[in-house]
Nucleic acid binder design. Structure first.
Lengths: 347, 347
DNA sequence: GGCGTTTACGCAAACGTTTGCGCTAGACTG
DNA sequence: CAGTCTAGCGCAAACGTTTGCGTAAACGCC
């Protein structure tokens, strides 16, 4: 607060040129002679000039900034996407304002309005509880991209995607999961989902479809309300009764919490039941037992997202939606039914 | 891009008043009559007016925005701080631009310059690899707060804190850890730290001090270079040889990865060795075995950070530094040496 | 040396706000 | 009724950039 920030006019005075010249020189405009350009750059450096992006955005009518809304950065899967997004964004000279929606309608609305107020160049939203149309309306002329699974009418999870949507190929992933499960001899399969969000209906439907395609019985689906706080306890006891061979979970977090609750009711993974997750968060590979899951290269997802936005910015509209490839990683939670002599002798 | 954004002049025209009046009306200036104020607000709402914060920041000489730099949001502990920061910030009408430093000097410098360019009101940085003075210099007149442990000369970890620094009371935490370990009968204690960052030297010194104060032998300290990618493997084998009663880790992530590596070399936690972490990340309470750790209410940390910044903004300078209280949470990884009959019969 | 062309730079408007100050009309005071 | 006050609003400057257009000097050409 003490010393005023140095502006273009300060540099202009010191270099005895006009502000326009300084501006052009610093932006590398070729119509400025090399001599004055270097001279001006030197002075700018001496004065520790740092441009005011607010002023710039004002005249440019748009700031070199992306808005990114996530339900909760705390969730590892979202954190990874954010990271990738971040990296790619500032590789292209964009910065990103982050907002958490916290699965709350009003919070999300405020966040989106904030983006609009900042005149961000584009925004990516992952896992909103708002409808896609409301989001787009709130953001008005600004291009929007939906990361992760987006709610589409059940039954055509992989086709008729709304434009401006980038998500992992959950359907293919579920196919791989089911193939693996069948190969290992699991027969009865259950599904357990977290509380809210549109992703899980996609994954659930994908699982149902995958099973149907292979002439397997429909899965029992369990729904947990508050995964972080004991919401899976009843699910665990239900599973304890129904005794499916394996249970596939909405995501890794759900899977890990479920395993914990299963232990509490006396069921051992993978001895008594196989478990597979989704997302491959960092802790999936060091959990005990290590979690079988499907990885989606979340950071790539984030990176692709900004590529998406960039191209949609200069084309003026969003390009077609896209599915990200996905691969199953088999670890210790699915050795096959009854084969759960998991690291005997060590634990 | 199609329809131009609506501005104050649009509202002014429609309401047949001046722009100044509109501005004042919308900001609740009492010198505008209640009648016109509501009339203008109505029109603004009809037109879906959303203010241009860039223009505002330009005249206000400062944007209602905080910069927040973290090494990596993916790390759960940082994620939680970010979340708390976020919440408190937009409770006060501030938005936050996030940047990852990724433990890289140049990335951090770019990020800080970005903050300066945005003319953020204040910035909080957690776990920078830059020196505190360089950070402050880069950010010039803008107040800076260091979240988390900050590097201070060894030996006076808890006093002579540099101003503008907010961190958990690691020293007290380590005291609780040591007391707990002693009470449970652990005698030889090792310390394992992650690679970079200033936090761990603080915690290491805190552990050393805590042991010394209680007339216990100095700990063996291990240093891992790349925790995420097998860096703890050699540490695990070392521990396998030296056989300490317990090992306290720099943070939960390190602890969890270490436990995984220990299993790989045939050591069981807590049977063969006790483990305690630091931070209480979400997965600490569902790991197998569940991790004894010290919690620091990371979201509170984030919240306190913005309170800090807010008060430092209107006072014109940073208030004194502050230690956040911390408490030990005893779970399953420290039952006492040899008492590791951890959940027998279940796993 | 006149003419056109290029090079290198300056002028000034514009972006959307905020705010100090000035102004007017009506209310109030004596 | 003249003067003072106040409520309610408008004028215009300012914030720091960018950029279209103008222009002066330098240059090339015959």
């Amino acid at each position: 607060m003490t010393s005023r920030r140095v502006t273009l006019v300060d540099i202009a005075e010191r270099a005895s040129v006009s502000v326009a010249t300084v501006s052009r020189a610093l932006s590398g405009d070729p119509q400025i002679s090399a001599a004055t350009r270097t001279r001006i750059s030197q002075i700018a450096a001496d004065l520790k000039y740092v441009p005011n992006v607010n002023a710039r955005s004002l005249v440019l009518q748009s700031s070199a900034t992306f808005g990114l809304m996530t339900p909760d950065v705390t969730d590892p899967i979202h954190g990874q996407v954010v990271t990738g997004f971040q990296q790619q964004a500032d590789k292209h000279g964009y910065s990103v304002v982050l907002s958490n929606g916290f699965w709350d309608v009003d919070t999300e609305r405020r966040a989106l309005r904030e983006f609009a107020a900042h005149r961000v160049a584009a925004v990516a939203v992952m896992g909103s509880v708002l409808s896609q149309t409301e989001v787009r309306r709130l953001l008005a002329p600004c291009p929007v991209l939906f990361i992760g699974s987006e709610h589409v009418p059940a039954g055509n999870a992989d086709r008729d995607l709304p434009r401006g949507c980038l998500r992992p190929d959950d359907r293919d992933g579920m196919g791989q999961v089911v193939d693996h499960l069948i190969e290992r001899g699991y027969r009865t399969i259950a599904y357990v989902s977290g509380s809210s969000g549109a992703t899980q209906v996609i994954r659930r439907d994908a699982l149902i479809a995958a099973l149907a395609e292979r002439d397997r019985p429909e899965p029992v689906v369990h729904q947990a309300d508050d995964v972080d706080d004991g919401g899976l306890r009843i699910v665990a006891s239900q599973i304890c009764r129904t005794r499916p061979d394996a249970v596939v979970c909405y995501d890794d977090k759900t899977a890990l919490f479920l395993i914990d609750e299963l232990r509490a009711v006396g069921m051992t993974v993978p001895n008594d039941v196989g478990v597979v997750g989704f997302d491959d968060i960092p802790f999936a590979r060091i959990s005990n037992p290590r979690l079988t899951t499907v990885t989606q290269r979340s950071d790539d997802l984030g990176r692709s997202a900004v590529d998406f936005l960039l191209s949609s910015i200069d084309r003026g509209k969003l390009v077609a939606s896209q599915l990200m490839p996905v691969t199953l990683i088999v670890r210790e939670t699915t050795p096959g039914p009854g084969k759960g002599s998991h690291r005997k002798g060590i634990r």
